[in-house]
Amino acid sequence: MDTRLLLVSHAATAAQRAGRFPADDPLDSRGRAEAEAARARLALPADATVFTSPAASARETVAALGLSATPADALADVDYGKWRGQRLADIADEAPRELAAWTREPDAAPPGGESFDRLVRRIGEWLDAQQADVRSCNAVNEAGFAASAHRRTIVAITHATLLRAAIVHALDASPTVFCRIEITPLSVVELRHSRRGWSWWPSATA
């Protein structure tokens, strides 16, 4: 059985628009409206297994999209450490070298936080665990050969940083490319797993 995974970045928050590092911020009325408006455009499969980051922004995006989802800690946003909730402009004034390193070097991390390198490993472990679950189900399924002809679809509502990390893992790319991957709110990244491993597909949510 192949796996089709649709990773969706949550709707924008007021903190994002203000240039602040996330601090488990909820959606505001504008963000909820944008997520509700995107519901028809995204057309996420009704038969998908749905997971979400535990963050308020992701869970509220799930609700606005009319979905029901299981929280997964592995889908949590990158840990911003001491920068959590602070304005990017303030960090640029107070710690320019550390901020510059964080935006360019995948093994650099905010003080007390998580590096992009570590994030790639985290989401990679989760992605591979999803496919391991499929193999386990097929192994005990009496109709395993028939089941293998079908595709399991997963939807994960999470954060832009996780979508970047998932692309890097799927392509087995150098984490140094992370700063060149742009993800906007309510973007969709489609990954598929087959005998060749994970592949990045053009976005097509229907």
Rank of each mutant, 00 (worst) to 15 (best):
V8M: 12
A11C: 11
A12M: 13
A15S: 15
A15E: 07
R20M: 08
F21E: 10
A23V: 00
L27K: 01
G31S: 02
G31F: 01
E34I: 00
R39Y: 08
A40M: 12
A56W: 05
A58F: 08
T61E: 05
V62N: 00
V62P: 03
A63K: 05
A64D: 06
S68F: 10
T70E: 02
A72C: 10
A72K: 06
L75A: 04
V78L: 14
D79F: 06
G81C: 01
R87N: 12
R87E: 15
L88F: 15
A89G: 10
D90F: 00
I91M: 05
R97V: 07
A101S: 10
T103M: 15
T103G: 13
R104F: 11
A109C: 15
P110K: 02
P110I: 03
G112F: 00
G113P: 05
E114I: 13
S115G: 07
R118V: 09
V120E: 02
G124I: 02
G124L: 03
W126N: 04
W126A: 03
D128T: 07
D133W: 05
D133R: 12
V134N: 02
S136H: 09
N138L: 13
N141Y: 04
N141H: 00
E142Q: 02
E142M: 03
G144I: 11
H150Y: 00
R152E: 15
R152Y: 12
T153G: 01
T153Y: 07
H159A: 09
T161A: 14
A165E: 01
A166T: 09
A170Q: 01
D172L: 12
S174M: 07
T176R: 10
E182L: 01
V188M: 07
V189A: 12
V189K: 00
E190M: 12
E190P: 02
L191P: 02
L191G: 08
R192N: 13
R195M: 14
R195D: 15
W201V: 15
